[in-house]
């Protein structure tokens, strides 16, 4: 079965950002510019955090919204074809979770590919790879 990245328990998140930093390391770089996962506080750090990442919708609105067909459905989640993308940000508006992140440097969307690298660096069991359809 294919696997998707799932936010198992955001209540355990401590805001270390190790997931987001791990995501950038996929590209052999540091920082957050091309990270497909983000963490934000829920009205201040004392009230906890949300982890913002693609949930691999069965019928993804980001793909449906793209006027040039640059986002296509994949076995898990979607794939972006940067060469087709015109940088219009319609996909960003289409995702109700804000999980279509934006690379300001290349002016293209960044969407999680569910590789699970971030989960292997989460020290506190907030995120994990799980089989599609199990959660």
């Amino acid at each position: 079965m294919p696997k998707r990245l799932a936010v198992v328990d955001p209540g355990r998140c401590v805001d270390c950002l190790l997931c987001a930093l791990a995501c950038s390391r996929r590209f052999g770089e540091g920082g957050l510019a091309r990270s497909a996962i983000a963490v934000r506080s829920v009205g201040g750090v004392e009230h906890g955090f949300v982890v913002i990442v693609c949930r691999a919708c069965p019928d993804p609105p980001c793909a449906a919204s793209c006027p040039v067909g640059a986002i296509t459905k994949a076995p898990v989640g979607v794939r972006v074809q940067p060469d087709r993308c015109i940088g219009c940000r319609t996909c960003v508006l289409a995702c109700p979770f804000g999980a279509v992140h934006w690379d300001e440097e290349s002016n293209k969307p960044v969407i999680c590919v569910h590789c699970g690298l971030c989960a292997s660096f989460c020290p506190h069991g907030v995120i994990a790879l799980e089989e599609v359809g199990s959660g």
């Binding site: 950038s24 390391r25 052999g28 770089e29 540091g30 920082g31 957050l32 510019a33 990270s35 440097e105």
Partner: peptide
């Protein structure tokens, strides 16, 4: 800040 930091030697860094 959400910029990029280049890594000269990614395999060793990882």
């Amino acid at each position: 800040g959400t910029g990029t930091i280049p890594i000269p030697d990614p395999p060793r860094y990882q």
